[in-house]
Design a protein around this nucleic acid. Structure first.
Lengths: 137, 137
DNA sequence: AGTGAGTTGACAATCGTTCTCAACTAGTCT
DNA sequence: AGACTAGTTGAGAACGATTGTCAACTCACT
């Protein structure tokens, strides 16, 4: 092992299996937030049955990689949605789930200053906005 | 049933039982966020054993009434904390859970304007800030 | 003391999620 | 192409937080 070009330790070998592709593709077919179970069901309807455990595993990977956003419903269920790379938040319709990605330098600045003010380091935050979208009200 | 003074329909009769008092009191004995199970355990240690189901029920009531804040941990567990009446957010230490309540007219304004911009009504939002507190870093 | 609606607690049941593990597969080396 | 192997899959068991069930209890009021 005298090779000089190791791949970055970040990617621990990920195989593009049929199942993973199916999940990734399915994530592109809707724009609201859905639960793992719903996504599993969707895959079944599409004729690309994938084991529930695999759906969970794949969604986890995707979330870690930042390819999907994860939210928690009021009752603790995890819901997923494909997302853009950059840091952003969501404006979600309570009724139909319609979601808009929003960015806010204002909030970013604000949270950072608040944290600094209290001496907190390594700041991160979660922010979601809920409301009733135009077509639901 | 000819009485003319009904109590406001908001309060459907709430009895101040020993258990409820115990839970409420226990909530005053710490300032970080704790899970229902931890609170149940705490009560046990204090010699005021309260059934787990009752702890859950009571915390729910308190949360509905706005007397405690509820958060979801990364893995979906609900955690509770006594809170002030006014609308506020939290700056939570990832390590020790030390929590600071923060207010932010800035954010309130921002979320409202974002929502309006997209035509969303009945806006609410959740915002939590996580970081490492001074004594943990 | 008696009454009844609200409350409790032990336990079962639910439900989302993770674990287990034998069977399978993509990629690689020969 | 065949063999090898580490990563992957899926069915089902296991798990853990939370909620439901229901008979026994208790507070507040007569």
């Amino acid at each position: 092992m005298t090779s000089t070009d190791q791949p970055p330790p970040s990617a621990p070998a990920l195989r593009p299996t049929k199942q993973r592709k199916a999940v990734t593709e399915a994530m592109g077919s809707f724009t609201d937030f859905r639960s793992a179970q719903e996504i599993h069901e969707l895959l079944g309807e599409r004729g690309e049955a994938v084991g529930l455990a695999t759906v969970y595993r794949t969604l986890q990977r995707l979330a870690e990689a930042g390819d999907v956003d994860v939210l928690r419903t009021e009752d603790g269920e995890a819901i997923y949605r494909r997302c853009s790379d950059s840091h952003h938040h969501h404006l979600v319709c309570r009724e139909c789930g319609a979601t808009v990605e929003v960015e806010g330098p204002t909030v970013e600045r604000w949270t950072r200053s608040i944290a600094a003010e209290h001496g907190y380091a390594d700041v991160s935050h979660t922010l979601e906005i809920f409301g009733t979208c135009p077509s639901c009200s």
